[in-house]
Design a protein around this nucleic acid. Structure first.
Lengths: 198, 198
DNA sequence: ACCGTTATGGACGAACGAGTCAAGAATGGG
DNA sequence: CCCATTCTTGACTCGTTCGTCCATAACGGT
């Protein structure tokens, strides 16, 4: 009936994510994205509506994929819960250190730039953070059931602390901290978590 | 000999800081700053050179004042070192929660937006972070001398952890965490620091 | 009082970027 | 084979913003 699209929507979102991530929202031009995707500006506007809407799509997409990835890393049986937590914390440190461009996490970067003035972005960021907190809390509770973390500790508070440490690691990474520093932070954070009296 | 300036340079920097802080670098217009300060654009350019240079001045200024403020909060005798540390951590949580505009810390916001592409900003942010870490380390070492923190812990690593928690608190605050959550994180972080065996 | 020097402020130039539009192209059903 | 429909392309408009320029104003030394 009608002419079909020549491009893959998800691919365009990925490319746009790359641009927004590296340049920030305000500094990224729609024409950059058009060139990077090979699309004309008309197609871009036709398919996504405008710069802000495109960013919202990209941001939603990114938040979803982050939560998904963490969910895959943290879900599982009680026996391995502590190992998964430890692996996750070290993985964030390693990923941050490996990010030589210091672009950090688009979630943090986008929220920093736009949350104050864009309710949609703020809401989305909040939802993602809450989801991450819930995932951590679930894993920590599993650790407690398995006797790897003190049973009398509040898993919600520990999860909030771990989440803060993880976000802090990313912030410090963006500020140029060394891989050693970041790994140390990860190790120290895990080390100070309350172990059960035995 | 020559006509003197009608404005106070520091006041202009403060106003500009406000604008950059609230809007970010890219989204703040030089004319905004001109209007906010009551200056003409010619004066602004004459005194500071350009947008980038003005931002560098503002950023330097801000980093310096943050480090100064923390320095005043953390320096002192060994007896009160732990009290100072505790007060500082809670103060950051409270300040972040009180920041209803969720603008966070200009250090973090500026670094997030520009560090990747502006070496000067990146360097300055790194220096400020290192200074903060050193201040924390000094205070923690004092806590250890006074028997408030386990003497066998590595003060540098604990300082890095606390710094990460502090930066994380700000990041979570920007993402919309409640005051209760932030205060809990502060309390939990202090609670898990290793106390000396007695 | 004069004059060289520096500050002021607003008009101006030039570039840039978001979003629009119209003409043409690709598709599948009739 | 034709047509309605949707996609594509890139030139165009229009507002915006950085930075400049210049006529004018305010100083202090001589």
């Amino acid at each position: 009936m009608a002419r079909p699209r020549k491009f893959d929507e998800q691919q365009v979102l990925d490319t746009a994510r790359e641009r927004f991530w590296s340049g920030g929202y305000a500094a990224t031009r729609m024409e950059d994205i058009a060139e990077a995707t090979g699309l004309g500006k008309g197609s871009l506007y036709g398919a996504f509506g405008g710069k802000q809407e495109l960013f919202h799509r990209v941001f939603d997409d990114y938040c979803g994929s982050v939560v998904d990835a963490v969910s895959r890393q943290l879900r599982g049986n009680d026996e391995d819960a502590y190992a998964r937590l430890s692996a996750h914390v070290y993985a964030v440190a390693a990923a941050t250190a490996a990010d030589t461009a210091h672009r950090g996490c688009l979630l943090a970067k986008g929220a920093a730039e736009l949350a104050e003035h864009d309710e949609t972005v703020a809401k989305r960021a909040r939802a993602a953070i809450e989801a991450l907190q819930a995932l951590l809390e679930g894993d920590i509770a599993a650790c407690q059931r398995n006797g790897d973390i003190a049973a009398d500790a509040d898993p919600g508070k520990l999860a909030a602390l771990v989440l803060a440490v993880l976000r802090g690691i990313e912030a410090l990474g963006k500020a140029g901290a060394s891989e050693e520093t970041l790994t140390d932070i990860a190790g120290t954070a895990l080390a100070v978590l309350p172990r059960p009296a035995r």
